[in-house]
Design a binder for these strands. Structure first.
Length: 263
DNA sequence: GCGACAG
DNA sequence: ATCTTGTCGC
C-alpha cells in the first residue's frame, strides 16, 4: 500500500531555510533500500516476462527543458515524462508551469518539481519506477530531486546525474571499465555520518582502446531503492547510450515538445 | 574569507 | 539548463 506525502510537495514560496528543513523531513521519510514489488530481472530482458512475475515494470523517465520569454528570459519549465515497459514506449506526456525561482545547487526540486508533478498527473499508466536527471541521496541533505519526487508520490525512484554534487568517490573514477561502479560516500558537506554509502559512479558506456574516456553517471537511491539496485537498474537500462533509455527518451521529448511550442 | 556547487 | 556545426577518431 502506498503512502503519498503531498504535504512534502515542493513550494517555491518557502524561504531557503524552510526549503532545507523540508528536505530534512523528506530524507527522514525516504527509504534508501529496496522496497518494491516488481522483479528487477525483467528490466533488461523483455522476453523473460513469461518465466517471471507477469508484465515487466513500467519505468518512467523524467527530464526538463526551459521556455524563453519574448524578452529572452526563462519563464517556464517544461517537464517531459516517458513511460516504458519492456523496452517499449507506452506513453508520453508533458506539462509546462511558470518558473518561480532561480537554480540554486541543492534546491533543484523546488525549481523543477511543479512541472514534474503536473506531468506525472497526466500519466494514465501507473509508474513502478521513476528515473530522474539529477541526484537522489547524493545531496547535501540526502534529498535530491529523485528523493523528493519519489517520497511525495511514494513511488520507487532513482537519481541519475551527469556530474557529482557532493560526496567522495572511494576510488579513482577515471577510465572505469564499462559495467563497473565506484561507491560514493558522504563527506563533511553531507548531512550524514562520514562514510555513509550514498550511491555509485556507474560506467554504463566506455570506449575500448583509444585515449578517449567517457565520464561515469552518478547514480543514487531516490526512494524505496537501495544503492546497489539503483546501479544495477541503470546498467540494465543503458543499452546503447550512456543514459538509461527512459531518461534519454525523456531528454529527447523535452526538446521536441519545446520545439513544438517555440517554432 | 575562500571554495564547491545536480539542472 | 542554454547558445550550436563541424569535426576528430574509431
Amino acid at each position: 500500500m502506498r503512502h503519498p506525502r503531498p504535504d512534502l510537495a515542493p513550494d517555491a514560496g518557502l524561504s531557503r531555510a524552510e526549503m532545507e528543513a523540508l528536505q530534512r523531513e523528506i530524507a527522514d521519510a525516504a527509504v534508501f533500500e529496496d522496497d518494491f514489488a516488481f522483479d528487477p530481472a525483467t528490466l533488461s530482458n523483455p522476453l523473460a516476462t513469461t518465466a517471471s512475475a507477469g508484465d515487466p515494470p513500467v519505468v518512467v523517465g523524467v527530464d526538463q527543458s526551459f521556455l524563453t520569454n519574448e524578452d529572452g528570459d526563462q519563464d517556464r519549465a517544461l517537464s517531459a515524462v516517458v513511460a516504458t515497459r519492456g523496452g517499449e514506449v507506452i506513453e508520453r506526456v508533458h506539462a509546462v508551469t511558470p518558473l518561480e525561482i532561480p537554480y540554486v545547487p541543492g534546491l533543484l526540486s523546488f525549481r523543477e518539481g511543479a512541472p514534474i508533478l503536473a506531468a506525472l498527473d497526466e500519466l494514465s499508466v501507473e509508474p513502478d519506477l521513476l528515473l530522474f536527471d539529477g541526484s537522489g541521496r547524493i545531496h547535501f541533505r540526502q534529498a535530491g530531486i529523485a528523493t523528493h519526487m519519489g517520497v511525495v508520490r511514494d513511488v520507487p525512484s532513482i537519481g541519475v546525474a551527469k556530474s557529482l554534487l557532493c560526496g567522495t568517490p572511494r576510488e579513482d573514477t577515471d577510465d572505469l571499465l564499462e559495467g563497473t561502479r565506484v561507491a560514493i560516500e558522504s563527506n563533511s558537506r553531507v548531512d550524514a555520518p562520514d562514510g555513509t554509502l550514498l550511491g555509485y559512479a556507474v560506467q554504463t558506456r566506455q570506449y575500448d582502446s583509444p585515449n578517449r574516456y567517457i565520464n561515469p553517471l552518478y547514480v543514487s537511491p531516490g526512494h524505496r531503492v537501495g544503492p546497489e539496485t539503483a546501479a544495477d537498474v541503470v546498467l540494465a537500462l543503458a543499452s546503447s547510450y550512456k543514459l538509461p533509455e527512459p531518461v534519454r527518451l525523456a531528454d529527447q521529448y523535452a526538446d521536441e515538445a519545446k520545439r513544438n511550442l517555440t517554432e
